[in-house]
Structure formats: C-alpha cells, structure tokens
C-alpha cells in the first residue's frame, strides 16, 4: 500500500490502480497519514525555507460542520456529455476545414490532371477496337488485377475523332 501511495503521488499508476488505491484511502487513516508525510517530505525538499504548519486537522474540524458536497449523477453525466459533444463538434469542424481546403485546391489541380490525361490519350487511340476481346481474356487470367471478379464486366473503350479513319484502315488490312 505504501509503495502504491508513493507511486500515486508521482502520477505513475495506471487508472485502475488509482481507482483501487483511492477507494482504500477512505477507510484507512494510516494510509492518509502516509500520504501527508510523503507530501511534507516533498515540500521540505523543494522549499525548505517555506514550510507551514499542518492545517489539515483544523480544516477537517471546520469541514465537520459543512454539509457534505454531493453532485447529482445527472449533473455529472451532463458535464461528461457536454465535454463529449464539444469534442465531437471540434472533430466535425476540423473535417469541415479540411474538406473546404481540398475543395479550394481542387479546381487548381484539375487542369494539370486534364493535361496529363490528354497527353496519355493518343496511346489509347492506338488500341484497335478489335483487340478488346483479347484484352478482356487476358485481364481475366491476370493475377495482378485488383478488381478480381469485376474484370469480366470491364470493357476498354476509347473515343477518338479518328475512329472512323482507324476502322477504314483496319478494313483495308
């Protein structure tokens, strides 16, 4: 118990240990005396020139005439709900700010992406529509696909103004 009191003073106990030891303080005056003595030692070591006399007994006597403090459970629960609500509101606000920032950045980024896509597009135009069946069959057996099962339903499509010309060329071949 004494060692736990020492660790409690230093904030070095886990939550469940704290709960346990604080419960034991209630009916153990010797434990409370140890707590007081250990704190006195700490105060003396930190401020040896500023040691006051012990007021706890006098305060205890005065408190005997005071009505016991009691906060209704509902009020305590309200306080907890309030703090949770505030945390939730802060999270929502943070998400809102991040979303708004990404929307602000969006229109600037998209032209670049469009340019990149346009740069890639001519390569697509080289794929003949007649090769779609071959690509689909290959994709179906490919182990690297991330869309297993969905590949069957994917059809490679490209559009180009030169489509008619390509068809003509294929016909000639």
């Amino acid at each position: 118990m004494k060692q736990e009191i020492s660790a409690l003073m230093d904030g070095e106990l886990y939550e469940d240990e704290v709960e346990n030891i604080l419960s034991r303080f209630k009916g153990d005056s010797a434990a409370r005396k140890n707590w007081a003595a250990y704190h006195l030692i700490g105060d003396v070591l930190r401020q040896p020139d500023h040691i006051h006399c012990d007021l706890s007994a006098t305060i205890r006597d005065r408190m005997a005439t005071e009505p016991t403090v009691f906060v209704p459970r509902g009020q305590a629960a309200k306080q907890k709900i309030r703090s949770i609500a505030l945390s939730a509101a802060a999270s929502v606000a943070a998400i809102g700010v991040v979303s708004w920032m990404s929307l602000q950045i969006g229109p600037e980024a998209s032209p670049n992406m469009m340019m990149q896509q346009n740069a890639i597009r001519p390569a697509k135009a080289q794929i003949l529509p007649s090769s779609n069946d071959y690509l689909l069959a290959h994709q179906e057996f490919s182990p690297s696909t991330d869309m297993s099962g969905g590949a069957y339903y994917i059809r490679t499509v490209s559009y180009s103004a030169d489509d008619t010309q390509l068809k003509d060329n294929a016909g000639k071949r």
Partner: peptide, 20 residues
Amino acid sequence: ERVQRGDKHAFDLLVSKYQR
C-alpha cells in the same frame, strides 16, 4: 470527483497535498 460524490476524506488528501 470523489469529493463531489460525498467523500470528505478525498478532500483531506487534496488539503494535505496543497496546503503548504
């Protein structure tokens, strides 16, 4: 929180800790 639930001894501990 213990004091708020009616535990006066818990207040004793706070007095011992902070009185000086």
